[in-house]
């Protein structure tokens, strides 16, 4: 069953007198449990596609269904609710909340969902342990390395057991060893927990790890390869 279904998706921006066609009619289905990389050069539309799937942006035309809900017809508040309940995000530059410790960052989404303090703390601690950050729960982002911060970001994204994790260039700010470790972590979470991951990335290591690689060029899908599994 598709967790993401995109039909004839278009996104246009106006920049001064020009219209930029970021996406020119994209069709894509992503099944639950997939580990998919959206690849392509800068400006190919991969981040735009990721933002649209994540309900952070609105399409000019076309349909997006995520977890059975039609995003193109949803109001901003409902999209926000969908992000909170069903989606996890990992960003390029970690984007942790600097005044919160690792465990507080991890439980932030659970707090927004209104879970009890004790319950969310326990889940956040377990999730941090699962991403290999046991013992660092009470450090603030400024006291963690880049790799550790990105692990906290992954923990934050998966603590609420989302239907789909969207990761925008998650390894771009990490050295190759740390980046590799992070990919392995996400692979393991995909394998063990059945979490669906969609990446927008340039990183060949991610491409190697992905079981499906969708290449975008000029706002269109140029190729869609699945590796044998």
């Amino acid at each position: 069953m598709s967790i993401v279904s995109v039909r004839n998706l278009r996104r246009e921006y106006t920049q001064g007198a020009f219209t930029v066609h970021a996406l020119r009619g994209v069709d894509l289905d992503i099944a639950a449990g997939e580990f998919t990389a959206l690849m392509g050069p800068s400006g190919s539309g991969k981040t735009t596609l990721l933002n649209l799937i994540g309900g952070l942006d609105e399409p000019t035309a076309g349909e997006i269904t995520v977890d059975g809900q039609d995003l193109s017809r949803m109001k901003a508040g409902d999209r926000s609710e969908l992000r909170l309940r069903r989606l996890g995000f990992v960003f390029q530059s970690y984007n942790l909340i600097p005044v919160l410790s690792a465990v507080e960052n991890t439980e932030f989404v659970l707090m927004l969902r209104g879970e009890s303090a004790a319950n969310r703390r326990q889940r956040a601690m377990e999730t941090l342990a699962a991403v290999g950050l046991k013992g660092m729960e009470h450090r603030r982002p400024s006291e963690l390395s880049g790799g550790q911060q990105q692990r906290v970001a992954v923990a934050r994204a998966i603590a609420g057991e989302p239907a789909l994790v969207l990761a925008d260039e998650p390894t771009a700010n990490l050295d190759s060893t740390t980046g590799h470790e992070l990919i392995e972590l996400m692979q393991r979470l995909n394998r063990e927990r059945g979490l669906t991951f969609v990446f927008a990335t340039h990183d060949p290591k991610v491409m190697e790890a992905a079981r499906r690689v969708v290449r975008l060029e000029d706002g269109q899908i140029a190729s869609d390869e699945r590796k044998g599994s």
């Binding site: 994540g54 952070l56 508040g77 926000s80 609710e81 969908l82 992000r83 909170l84 309940r85 989606l87 995000f89 960003f91 984007n95 909340i97 600097p98 932030f108 989404v109 927004l112 934050r156």
Partner: peptide, 13 residues
Amino acid sequence: RELGVMGALGTRP
């Protein structure tokens, strides 16, 4: 940026 991230994570206005 930080407030934008909070919004992206599903924080209501």
